[in-house]
Design a protein around this nucleic acid. Structure first.
Lengths: 228, 228
DNA sequence: CCAGGAATATGATTTATATCATTGCCTCCA
DNA sequence: TGGAGGCAATGATATAAATCATATTCCTGG
């Protein structure tokens, strides 16, 4: 139990919480584990839970009528998700699916509200988190509107590396299949495979068993089009 | 002056405001006019203003390194924009550009904050507005990830009609050039022209001088892929 | 009312990528 | 231990859409 408390305290959103409120939060936050492919919630579900990733990764996904999957975002350990629904009290706009084995802390809306009343800065942080996400979507849209697939993939790899790797941003510690990548940039598996192989042959990226390493971020940036 | 007050009162976000606060708001909100192509603010500008469209339309745009324009969203009369920056206190993620002649009410951050303190429901409404926008982006992303351009255009036209036309959602009262449409769906002008002509020949849409009319929403929906 | 720039239109050509098809590899599990 | 299914890889082909090249029409500002 002490560990959960420490984990919560380590998150920027809760780090300034006075002890009694942190205790309350620790008590209220329920821990769940999910296996690969399991859903934490579905698009359209009532906005009941704020989620925090303790371990593993989660993807936000939507499905088109024809069954095609679109990956809106990949969340990392320490990330918060579901705050949009908590804040505007409307159903989740997308599903949240576990990538590999994950541990998720879930805080019920009622308790979240309680904590926000005790500590208004939590609410501010939630709004900031939502804002960050919106800015991410703007960026995402930019990627998606780029015509050449290679550019889109390059752009996406750079962004992912920046988000998942603290040291230098050249590592993607994520189990991404080619299909995942395809669903992130809106192309087919075959095209993704071809482009990824080409990037490997060119010595720009390297597939390790624990993810992808960007060997030449400079060259990738060239292809991705000056991603700042 | 009385007219400005009435306009503000007519907006859902301010309609419940007690009279003295509405008066204060009316006093603080400054009205500006913009000509076609002028910018209300630029991407990266400090987050100083909350904007409300009194007349005309505004597009939220980004520019890629190569100069290509991406239209993120088109705002309609009565719409609020800039609330993301106001809420999370970070620079605008995109520029706001006037489409044709527009009248914009601008409320400075400091006054916006004041009003929110006087009337907390305004803050709630701002958060809701931001949430709505985020949901819009998710939807937008869905469109952008669709491979066939015709589908993307169909999807976009249906959404625009829904947003700009209260009665039936078959009318787009907007001065959109083919270039605008191209920049909204991420394609070239030529392709847009060809597809729009085809849709006209097929009797699905009609170009009027005041915008676009969707004659056969059903057929467009078929192409757009069951847009609910 | 005219001139010149923007917007629309349309054709020809090229190219990127979707699509279809097949194969091999690996891992999980019965 | 031997499938069965998921993933990566690769080739062949079809096709949508980008690109290049001109016209033509339409406004709008001077």
């Amino acid at each position: 139990m002490i560990v959960k408390r420490d984990f919560l305290k380590s998150l920027p959103i809760f780090s300034a919480l006075p002890d009694p409120i942190l205790d309350k939060l620790t008590d209220r936050a329920e821990e769940f584990t999910y296996k690969n492919g399991e859903y934490i919630f579905y698009e359209g579900d009532p906005p009941d839970w704020l989620c925090i990733i303790r371990e593993g990764n989660v993807k936000a996904v939507k499905y088109l009528e024809d069954g095609k999957e679109i990956i809106l975002h990949v969340f990392m350990p320490g990330d918060i998700f579901g705050e949009l629904a908590i804040l505007d009290r409307r159903p989740y706009p997308a599903s949240a699916q576990s990538m590999g084995h994950t541990k998720i802390l879930k805080l019920h809306y009622t308790h979240c509200r309680e904590i926000c009343e005790d500590a208004p800065e939590v609410r501010t942080r939630l709004i900031q988190s939502m804002g960050e996400k919106q800015r991410g979507f703007v960026d995402r849209l930019e990627t998606a509107m780029t015509t050449r697939v290679e550019k889109r993939i390059a752009h996406m790899l750079l962004k992912l590396a920046g988000a998942s790797d603290s040291k230098g941003g050249t590592n993607i510690n994520l189990h991404l299949t080619r299909k995942d990548i395809a669903n992130m940039v809106g192309t087919t598996i075959e095209t993704t495979i071809r482009i990824m192989s080409r990037l490997q042959k060119e010595g720009i990226i390297e597939g390790t068993k624990e993810g992808i390493t960007i060997l030449r971020p400079d060259l990738l940036r060239e292809k991705g089009g000056e991603y700042e």
